[in-house]
Design a protein around this nucleic acid. Structure first.
Lengths: 339, 339
DNA sequence: CTGTTAGCGCCTTCAT
DNA sequence: ATGAAGGCGCTAACAG
């Protein structure tokens, strides 16, 4: 009883053939009610469980999908994965996770691994640069395996994507800061060779232009998403002859670092200085001085990505480019004027 | 070229048999260097990739492990999963994630799904109550599939576990609060039918006893892990004739809620009141008033769990009960006396 | 309605 | 050193 029961065991016990057992188990119409009942009962009695591996090999469908992210333990990625899992679980899919640690080689390796594992689809937030070798991605497309980018996407044919409107988010945020009376808005940028960061930058730029505010290159600082870089960036900004009076940081962590440093320098937020983050990390809400930020709806993004996958699988849509609306969460760190 | 290349394709191209190809690919000693080289080259040329599914079916090893958690998008669970993934990736294992949403039926379902998927091991932080039906867990053990509990474990034979010493964490924390001059320590408890919460409670209790402080039942409040429950609990405590002057919350979120409410009531922390959390959620460090808490080393916990699994697979140890040391992070919310 | 046959892709005896 | 054959567990033709 400890070993695994197969349909052959059931067949033997019932003096019928495995095919019949299989049919009974799969609700095949051409089978008598009596044998079906019998099979179901014995299967249950013998504690039979279908071997998905055998099914997968036979059908060519593993019922697994892969998710490739830089790392799993950040609120954003964990939430997207949660969304994907919740969207796919009802359909019988399991989620396999892979981390790249922002390493391009690792990303290629992960794609290969997932391909070898015969996953039915791949969800990915890319780590490598858009200009780099795309060969490993082409292979996914050639094999006709649905590929869905989320957040950090590459613009490619035959590839779906789910993102927020980063340009809009950035534009609206910049506009908001201007409306708060800040015209000297510094900008903390991520790596602009990634589309999302390029889009965000363009939103910032355009909003300034539309308000006849000249771009000040000194205000634009490239940072990594962590507290220390935010602190350092402020340090730099405050040495300028004409320092800014607001920061739009494309990272909540850097925004936090900025706020810490500004406070240490005795600068009052939001009275003297506004700060806006990006990503709606949980801590932004909990601070005594709550941090304004942009919510990317990661849970919905994941669910939407799952839906896009299902639509493709079911031949409803061959390719979708879904753009979700960003949600500006205007909190204390950027609220000077109460409207 | 788009379809999948199999060893048969390679065999055909080389006028040899699939068995030989298989041997060449698997570095089987009894094969000539020349054919091996030839096979490897053609395999590469034809872009051959081993079908793990077929291998899994044949070998009975899927090279997948399953992880079952209440939810993935919390820092703790996401970090443990990350640790597991990192520990197992070098060994060629993939991680499949399942969420229970704290639902017992879902947990049973997840175990069954993973079993059907022929995973080589299961990592689990349980959602159901220890006294409940364990039948689904017994099946895992019977099938001789390594089962590793982490954090929320059940004490069972043949099952490994990786936890922190919750009793010690709790004892030390209580002791610390007493040393800060707080003798009226309220305690926010999780569901004590889970071992970790029972252990934590005992640590609290014992520390009080050892310091000759009587247990005050009014100070012991059962909460769920969120901000609102922390606020409500404080509300209750403050109506007591003899309110406490410290809170030890087994949830960081509840600790945060408590702090919010205490501040609203004009109570000064830590001067008039100390608060200690549990879990080292990222926000605890970032608050203007940083929150003292206990770090559970989730990343190491995951890596250790991975190691325990590997030890079992490799017949080094049949069963391990690993207990990690908790790390008290004494921060502002509980620091009255600077030593 | 049920049995027979075959094959998904791989590896591993057993021969040769 | 290589070939032939069988089987992991399942289902989908094809018969009857």
């Amino acid at each position: 009883m400890s070993g695994k029961t197969t349909i052959y065991d059931i067949a033997k016990a019932l003096n019928i053939t495995a095919a019949t057992v299989s049919r009974a188990l799969n609700d095949n119409p051409k089978i008598s009610q009596s044998t079906r009942k019998l099979v179901l009962e014995t299967a249950n009695k013998m504690n039979y469980k279908q071997n998905k591996l055998a099914l997968a090999l036979r059908s060519g469908k593993s019922n697994n999908v892969g998710v490739i992210v830089p790392r799993i333990n950040t609120n954003f990625f964990a939430s997207v994965i949660r969304g994907i899992e919740e969207g796919l679980h009802p359909e019988g899919y399991q989620v396999i996770i892979c981390q790249t640690h922002e390493d391009e080689d690792r990303e290629v390796e992960n794609v290969n691994t997932l391909l070898n594992a015969q996953v039915d689809g791949i969800f990915m937030s890319i780590s490598n640069l858009p200009k780099e070798n795309n060969h490993y991605i082409e292979r996914v497309i050639q094999k006709n395996i649905p590929l869905i980018f989320f957040d950090r996407k590459k613009e490619m044919k035959n590839v779906s994507s789910v993102t927020i409107d980063d340009y809009l988010a950035s534009y609206q945020t910049t506009q908001h800061l201007i409306e708060q009376g800040c015209e000297k808005i510094a900008y903390f940028s991520g790596d602009r060779s990634l589309e999302i960061y390029e889009d965000r930058y363009r939103g910032y730029e355009q909003a300034l232009l539309d308000n006849n505010i000249p771009i000040n290159e000194d205000y634009i600082i490239s940072i990594k998403s962590n507290v220390v870089e935010g602190r350092d960036a402020v340090e730099k900004l405050l040495t300028l002859e004409n320092p800014p009076n607001a920061i739009f940081s494309t990272s909540d962590f850097a925004a936090l670092g900025a706020i810490q440093k500004l406070k240490e320098r005795g600068i009052k937020i939001p009275e003297d200085f506004c700060v806006f983050g990006f990503g709606n990390e949980p801590f932004t809400k909990f601070m005594e001085l709550s941090i304004s930020t942009i919510d990317q709806s990661p849970l919905e993004m994941g669910k939407m990505a799952a839906q896009v996958f299902l639509d493709k699988i079911n031949n409803k849509k061959s390719e979708s480019k879904v753009v979700l609306l960003p949600k500006l969460l205007i909190r204390q760190s950027s609220t000077r004027i109460i409207t």
